[in-house]
Write a protein that binds this DNA or RNA. Structure first.
Length: 504
RNA sequence: GCUCCUAUCGUCUAGCGGUCGAGGACGUCGCCCUUUCAAGGCGAAAACAUGGGUUCGAGUCCCAUUAGGAGCACCA
């Protein structure tokens, strides 16, 4: 192996400690949520520890309240952490801006070891160098190394001249290759000549991501570094920093990014649209607002880039924990399949207990209709659960049951095509008589007797059912007729029917 | 432009050299059920990007091309 070529591979079998490390720049992005989910799943699948760490080393990008928002979103998804800023732990603090001493200490250590150096270049000088490099058809490597090879005298002179203002840059090997090993895609080889001397410590004394992530992951004993492929280009840098410190490498897991159906990665800035022009929610909050159930979002996200096996796509998170690993991750980037979320959401609702649905629906209905009769609500749920997706679709569907004031149908609505008012009036009157005579007002009994009536009159089912439904339910879309009347009750149903007959 | 990653139905995916004349799901389209709307049942159309290798045999391995993606900051 050439002197400058190193291989980094995975040998250790340490306890699983993984972390989700967002920077508090806004809401929790759906892509970040998936990274958090996969990380959390790995921890739970391996009796590991899941850590929340805040990467707030950019003072300019800090967004007030962002941390609270993110924690709320994570908890909504059910991704509870074991160590974190609000919980503490043995490896804290868990907020990088409170860990500055570590970064400074280790950055200086690297300088002392000759593995990093102070660079006094001003932003203007760098911009100019960059411009020149671009003009020469080059980009990246080269321009920033202006202060890497200085004599002590030159360095001292610059130090005075620039008022002691400098950044610390990592001294990347100039030749050879760096081989790294990613759990998802295997060996990746980089040419060292393509790499540049990244800034580790900024002139304000704050670390860059590159320094902070390595120092913290090491100090927090992170066993598996999970992140998206955005970080693949700086993978060799991070591996080299570990090497420079003499620290054992963690395992590296680069998850594929998720894309907008229209192309490009989902961004917080640009709105993301489906091919049909429909807006695709980007933050977890937007998914909450859209009315999706947390278990559906989790189920959906789990299927994006990972597969359960057995041709199953509907499952619960406890089932995922039984079999989650990084081996089944598909390395290819994927477009968000929003229509699958809708389908999954409906499936989860249908699989929920009536009590759970009632619990979710109660406050929504109360807000619109006032006090809600729990028995009636529980009674109607079996007949609406296949018709509500998202959950709030229930609100208009049960209006006939809970609205303070019943708004009767118009006569036009009650009269089917090719029939007239007189016919409808007659048939409704006969329905009234049949229903009124019923001891047992169950849907089954109603069904039996009304069907007998249909038979007797020689009319089509729709010619009887439709006016009856309009007369008693008075909605374009409703749960099934007899079941609805059963829950409504005999008295109310008949009163509405009587009124309809009068108006015809 | 340079570096790196990726490549199976429209989309999400299964497939880790022979069991693949490629399986599932969503979506789409038929049919059935049906009082509305759903749900459900049955069925159909729909893919291994292209070209070279390797091999007795390639969707599966290698290379190139093409396409998509990511990155190239004193941002993460």
């Amino acid at each position: 192996m050439p002197a400058q070529t190193r291989r980094y591979s995975i040998l250790s079998n340490k306890p699983v400690r993984v972390r989700f490390a967002p920077s508090p720049t806004g809401y929790l992005h759906i892509g970040s949520a998936r990274t958090a989910l996969f990380t959390w799943l790995y921890a739970r699948a391996n009796d590991g520890v899941f850590i929340l760490r805040i990467e707030d080393t950019d003072q300019n990008r800090f967004v007030e309240d962002s941390l609270q928002q993110m924690m709320r979103s994570l908890r909504w998804l059910g991704l509870e952490w074991d160590e974190g800023p609000d919980k503490g732990g043995n490896y804290g603090p868990y907020v990088q801006s409170e860990r500055l001493e570590h970064y400074q200490k280790w950055a200086n250590w690297l300088v002392e070891q000759g593995k990093a150096y102070r660079c006094y270049a001003t932003p203007q000088e760098l911009a100019r160098a960059k411009e020149l490099a671009e003009k020469a058809g080059k980009r990246g490597a080269g321009y920033e190394r202006m202060h890497r090879f200085l004599s002590d005298r030159e360095r001292a002179r610059l130090h005075d001249e620039r008022g002691g203002k400098y950044v610390i840059r990592f001294a990347m090997p100039l030749e050879g290759t760096t081989e790294v090993y990613d759990k998802v895609r295997g060996k990746i080889v980089f040419d060292n000549s393509e790499l540049n001397d990244a800034v580790l410590l900024k002139s304000d004394g704050f670390p860059t991501y590159h320094l902070a992530v390595v120092v913290d992951d090491y100090l927090m004993q992170i066993s598996h570094v999970t992140r998206t492929t955005e970080w693949l280009p700086s993978f060799p840098l991070h591996a080299r920093i570990y090497e420079a410190f003499g620290w054992e490498q963690p395992e590296w897991v680069h998850l594929p990014v998720i894309l907008c159906p229209g192309g490009g990665k989902m961004s917080k800035r640009k709105p993301c649209k489906s091919e049909e022009g429909e807006t695709i929610p980007v933050s977890v909050d937007e998914y909450i607002d859209a009315g999706y159930e947390p278990e559906a979002v989790v189920n959906w996200l789990t299927n994006l880039g990972w597969s359960f096996g057995d041709d199953r796509e509907f499952f619960y998170v406890h089932e995922t924990i039984q079999r989650f690993n990084f081996d089944r991750i598909n390395p290819a980037p994927a477009k968000v399949p929003l229509s699958k979320l809708k389908a999954l959401n409906g499936e989860h609702i249908r699989a929920m207990s009536d009590e759970r649905i009632a619990q979710e629906l109660h406050p929504m209905l109360e807000a619109v209709y006032g006090e809600i009769d729990t028995n009636k609500l529980l009674g109607i749920i079996p007949h609406i659960k296949a018709r509500i997706n998202p959950m709030r679709d229930a609100v208009p569907l049960v209006k006939f049951l809970f609205a303070k004031e019943f708004v009767p149908a118009t006569t036009e609505q009650m009269i089917p095509r090719k029939m007239d008012a007189a016919q409808v009036k007659t048939i409704l009157q006969r329905c009234y008589d049949v229903l009124n005579n019923l001891e047992d007002f169950s849907a089954a009994a109603q069904d039996k007797h009304i069907r007998a009536l249909v038979e007797e009159t020689g009319l089509k089912t729709g010619q009887v059912f439709s006016p009856l439904r309009w007369a008693t339910i008075a909605q374009e879309v409703s749960p099934p007729l007899f079941e609805s009347m059963e829950v409504l009750g005999k008295e109310v149903s008949l009163a509405r029917l009587r009124d309809a007959i009068q108006r015809l």
